[in-house]
Computed example of a mutant assay.
Amino acid sequence: MNLPFQNDDKALREGVDRVMNARKKAGLEGLVGGLEAVEINVQPANLRVAAEEFLGCTGHQFHMAYEHEHAHLCVLRQEGSADFLFTSRKDACSPFAAFNMAPKSKNLPETRLETFIFKCPDVERFAALQMERGNCFLTAEPLRTDKYVYIQTPPSRYTGNSIGFIQWLGAEGDWFRRGCGELNWKLDKPDKPHLANVHELDHAATRVRAEERDRAILEFMEWTNYSFDFAVYVEALNSITNVARLSADDFAMVFTSGISPFTTLEESGPTEKYIYNYNTRVHHLAFSTVNIEETYAAFKRDGMEFLVELVGGPDEGLHQTFTKPFPTTLLVNEYIQRYGGFDGFFTKSNVTMLTAATDNQ
């Protein structure tokens, strides 16, 4: 008799060992570094609004806006953090379109966080090694410009996310390549002292289907030098929060899934219901925050709405909260502060309260 599907970590841990051994054997170790940028595509009419919205809820500053043959782009930057590239396509065709056709996302068919871009010291070698393994990219060969060499994967069938790989040829972070035209934009940073409390991108969390959790994590490991670290099971909400790390000091990739698959909207937990409503996608971006209590209060005075009050606290070593989704990107912001002496990444109590809060979407 076939038992109902349920996740556990045994098969995943075995898969992690296989992937790491295969990476080493293929010569891929050390070829993918930390996160350089996050690319968020929005509806063309929302590009400027989305960038201004982001300036008003993070510590990032406006860097520049420009266009090339395929898109308009706006670059937002903060020292010590990944860049954020807000884009809108000129082309009608998008490889991500099918992932946006869900009940609560189909009204914004071009809107999603699409690509995580990682640093790579030798993109051409990396691409050749991956192709030898049978993996493919969106282009037959890397794009070589005067500023960088770049290639990216197709959207993952498990997450809807693409992974980009960039090799800088000159100054790091110089996205303005030959053939681009600068846009006459000047986006002012709001004069609000509490925005200085919001620092680097700490992690991003993608919602994936229960039955595809292992494959989503292992696929990400096959493309990067990340490894699965640990999982937090919240049985009462049918949810698992899975963390992949490059190192303790780098951006972390989080995958949240059900323990068992979606059944009905009435019976399934918040994670599987979110996927039903929005499809697999990045749910939230978490920013390292200091003076979080004062920052949270200031955001509330500004009119920002939250899915949950601050959870945790100094005694637990961790303070976190979720905003409501931003209308131009569908993304939630998490603000997170870890206190001195806290040697973990999450606590189960905080994960439980934050997961339950997503039911309010």
Score class of each variant (00 low, 15 high):
Gly164Tyr: 07
Phe118Trp: 13
Glu172Thr: 07
Lys104Ile: 08
Arg112Glu: 03
Met131Tyr: 07
Met101Pro: 01
Arg125Ile: 07
Gln152Arg: 13
Gly134Val: 08
Lys119Asn: 15
Gly164Gln: 00
Glu124Lys: 15
Thr145Phe: 07
Cys120Tyr: 02
Lys106Asp: 04
Trp175Ser: 05
Leu113Gly: 06
Pro142Gln: 10
Cys136Val: 12
Gly170Asn: 06
Gly160Trp: 09
Arg125His: 13
Phe118Leu: 15
Pro142Gly: 11
Gln152Gly: 03
Asn107Leu: 05
Arg178Cys: 02
Met101Arg: 09
Leu143His: 07
Gly181Thr: 15
Met101Ile: 04
Ala97Tyr: 15
Ile117Phe: 07
Asn107Trp: 11
Gln167Arg: 07
Val149Arg: 05
Trp175Gly: 09
Arg125Gly: 09
Ser105Val: 15
Gly164Ala: 05
Ala127Gln: 14
Asp174Glu: 14
Leu113Val: 10
Thr111Cys: 14
Arg144Thr: 14
Gln130Cys: 13
Arg112Ser: 15
Ala128Gln: 13
Glu141Val: 03
Pro121Ile: 10
Val149Met: 00
Leu108Gln: 08
Arg144Leu: 12
Glu172Ile: 00
Ala140Asp: 15
Tyr158Ile: 03
Pro155Phe: 12
Glu141Tyr: 09
Gly173Asn: 10
Trp168Glu: 00
Arg157Gln: 10
Leu138Asn: 10
Ala98Pro: 02
Ile117Ser: 08
Val149Trp: 02
Cys180Leu: 06
Thr159Leu: 10
Glu132Met: 14
Gly179Asp: 01
Ala171Phe: 03
Phe137Pro: 09
Gly181Val: 08
